[in-house]
C-alpha cells in the first residue's frame, strides 16, 4: 500500500523567488516523518510539492525530482490529478465541504470525480474510512447531518477520513492539529500512530513535543535570513534529533534558543 519517497536536489520557486533550495530527503514506507522549523522556512511549501499542490498557486514551480517508488512526480506526462489520488493531504484548518453531509464528505473524492459507486459499497467505504479516522462511533447516528456541524477536532478527523477514502499511498499533513484543543490533538495523534501501519505519513508541525511523540524521523528546516531560501538543515531519527543533533542550529531551535 505505502511507498517510499525520494526528493532530489529540489528547488521550489514562487515566481522568481526561490523559497526552498536543495532539498534531498528519503522517506521510508510505513513511517512517520515530521518536518519542523520556524515559520516561513518552507516546510509547508516542501510538503505541497509532494502531491503537486504547490503548482496550484499561480507562478509556483519546482526544479529537481520527487520520486515515489522511483517514478518522478514531475516527469513528462505525469498527471497532477493522478498524483493527488496517490498522495492525500490534510490541511491546517479543517475544511469539510459545507454543502455536504458527513457521509457525502467522506465520499467526496469518489463522488466529485463523477465515479459511480453502488449504495452498499458506498456505505462500506464510509464506515471503513470513518473507523480508520476514529470517528465512526461519534457520528454513526448522524451521517446525513452537515459535516460543518461537528466540533473542530471531529471536523479534522472527518477530513482525514475523506483523505483516506480515496485510498492514497501517502498521507501529507500540514499542521493538522494547530487549530485543535489538546484532547482532539491526542485523538489525531493516536490516529497517526494507527495509520502508520498502512500509509507513509509526512507531517508538518510547529509543536516539537508532537514531532517527538508521533514521528520516526524528523527533518529540521531553517532559513538563514528573511529573503533567503529555506533549507533542510538535517534529517535523522527523531530520538537523535531531539537528543544529539549534528547541527548547532537544530539544537538551538529545539532547545528554544531561537525561533
Amino acid at each position: 500500500m505505502s511507498q517510499r519517497i525520494d526528493a532530489k536536489d529540489l528547488n521550489i520557486y514562487y515566481g522568481s523567488f526561490l523559497a526552498v533550495a536543495g532539498v534531498n530527503m528519503s522517506i521510508a514506507p510505513r513511517s512517520v516523518t515530521a518536518l519542523i522549523g520556524p515559520s516561513g522556512c518552507g516546510k509547508s511549501t516542501f510538503l505541497r510539492t509532494l502531491n503537486r499542490m504547490h503548482e496550484v498557486i499561480p507562478g509556483a514551480r519546482v526544479q529537481g525530482t520527487v520520486e515515489i517508488d522511483g517514478v518522478d512526480l514531475y516527469g513528462a506526462g505525469v498527471d497532477p490529478v493522478a498524483v493527488r489520488r496517490q498522495v492525500g493531504m490534510v490541511f491546517q484548518r479543517p475544511n469539510p465541504f459545507p454543502t455536504m453531509s458527513i457521509a457525502e464528505n467522506v465520499l467526496a473524492g469518489v463522488r466529485l470525480n463523477n465515479k459511480r459507486i453502488n449504495k452498499s459499497d458506498a456505505n462500506e467505504l464510509v464506515e471503513a474510512s470513518l473507523r480508520g479516522a476514529n470517528l465512526w462511533n461519534e457520528v454513526k447516528d448522524r451521517l446525513d447531518r452537515p459535516g460543518s456541524g461537528l466540533s473542530g477536532g471531529q471536523q479534522q478527523r472527518l477530513c482525514i477520513a475523506r483523505a483516506i477514502a480515496v485510498r492514497p499511498q501517502v498521507l501529507l499533513m500540514d499542521e493538522p492539529c494547530s487549530a485543535l484543543d489538546p484532547i482532539s490533538t491526542l485523538a489525531v495523534e493516536d490516529l497517526i500512530a494507527e495509520l502508520k501501519s498502512e500509509y507513509t505519513i509526512v507531517i508538518v508541525t510547529h509543536n516539537m513535543q508532537q514531532a517527538a511523540r508521533v514521528s520516526d524521523r524528523t527533518g529540521f528546516f531553517n532559513l538563514e535570513a528573511t529573503g533567503k531560501p529555506g533549507r533542510l538543515i538535517e534529517i535523522d531519527e527523531t530520538a537523535t534529533i531531539f537528543s544529539s543533533p549534528r547541527e548547532q542550529a537544530t539544537e538551538d531551535y529545539i532547545s528554544g534558543r531561537f525561533g
Binding site: V56, V81, V83, N95, F97, R111, L112, R162
Partner: peptide, 25 residues
C-alpha cells in the same frame, strides 16, 4: 480557497472542482 484545495488534494480535476464545489457552494 481551502475548499478548492481540499477538492484538488482529493485528486479531483480543476473543472470538476469548479462545477461541483465552487459553484455548488
Amino acid at each position: 480557497n481551502e475548499l478548492r484545495e481540499a477538492s484538488l488534494a482529493l485528486g479531483v480535476p480543476k473543472w470538476l472542482t469548479i462545477v461541483r464545489v465552487v459553484l455548488r457552494t
